[in-house]
Each structure stands twice: as structure tokens, then as C-alpha cells.
């Protein structure tokens, strides 16, 4: 019995130390929008982020021959959230267009606030956009 208690304590201590020193979840929420059909698909891969933000609305238009997407996000929390988001663009074959030029941007969301993020396609060939939101802790 004593041995079991010792082992349990040791395992708990190891888990706590590992949690304190790393093991950050990097999965996030993605919103994929097909600009040809107007359909959007929301994937919430992070249980933590799912409880923090919700996707409210997706609008899209075209400006100077380039597609543009506006996605409205709402905080479910009362505290300030520090997030990162990136909007990537894909051509008709599903290939990402100029991936290196689309970066993760900062998003500081106040408690229960709503914000609209906008992304512009980098080429007229882009037909699908994908918003990816991640926790700031997921950034290296």
C-alpha cells in the first residue's frame, strides 16, 4: 500500500513538472470558406480554445479582382484573450498560394467582445480561405 502511494505521488509529480515545463497544445480552431459556393466549415480541434472563442459569421466579397473574407469571432470569456490568427488561401486544386506571405497576426480580444478579422487573397487564383486561430501560448 505504502509502495503504491509512493508511486502515485511520483507519477503525479512528474506530470505536474511536465505540465509546467512544456506540453502546449498547438491545435486550434479553423474556419474553411469556399468562395465559389459560399459554404463554411468550422473545425474546433482544441477543447480549450473551443471554450474561449466562437465563430459568429462569415462574409466574403471581392475587391480589385481579389477575394476577401471577413470572419466574426466572439469571446466566451470575461477575461482578456491573447490569440494568434492566420488566413491562408488555396487555389482551385487545393494548393496553398504563397504560404510564406501569410503570417500569424495578433488578436487581443477583450472579455465577451466580438471582433471581425479580414483576409485578402494574394492572387486572383485563390478560391478558398482558411482561418486558423491558435492560443498565443502555442506560438513558439
Amino acid at each position: 500500500m505504502k509502495r503504491m502511494t509512493t508511486l502515485s505521488g511520483a507519477a503525479l509529480l512528474t506530470a505536474a513538472l511536465a505540465a509546467l515545463t512544456g506540453c502546449v497544445e498547438t491545435a486550434g480552431t479553423t474556419v474553411t470558406t469556399d468562395h465559389m459556393t459560399g459554404s463554411s466549415l468550422v473545425m474546433e480541434d482544441s477543447t480549450r480554445l473551443r471554450d474561449q472563442i466562437q465563430m459568429l459569421k462569415v462574409n466574403y466579397d471581392e475587391v480589385n479582382g481579389l477575394k476577401r473574407v471577413h470572419i466574426t469571432l466572439q469571446s466566451s470569456k470575461h477575461r482578456r484573450l491573447r490569440l494568434n490568427y492566420r488566413i491562408a488561401w488555396f487555389d482551385a486544386n487545393g494548393m496553398e498560394v504563397d504560404a510564406a506571405t501569410k503570417t500569424y497576426r495578433n488578436l487581443i480580444l477583450e472579455g465577451r467582445d466580438t471582433v471581425t478579422v479580414t483576409g485578402l487573397a494574394n492572387s486572383p487564383a485563390c478560391v478558398t480561405s482558411k482561418l486558423r486561430v491558435r492560443d498565443l501560448e502555442a506560438a513558439d
Partner: peptide, 26 residues
Amino acid sequence: GVAAAALWLTGCASTPTVREVALDRA
């Protein structure tokens, strides 16, 4: 012993560790 092993596994090296990081790091 377990605490020391966990610390050893997660860091505490005297030489710098070099790794590639994402372009959009924190």
C-alpha cells in the same frame, strides 16, 4: 529522484540548445 529526472528530461542543460522555430514565433 523523480523530480530530478523530470527536470533533467525537460531542460537544465549547461550548453545552449539550438533548434529551428516558426517564423511567427511569440
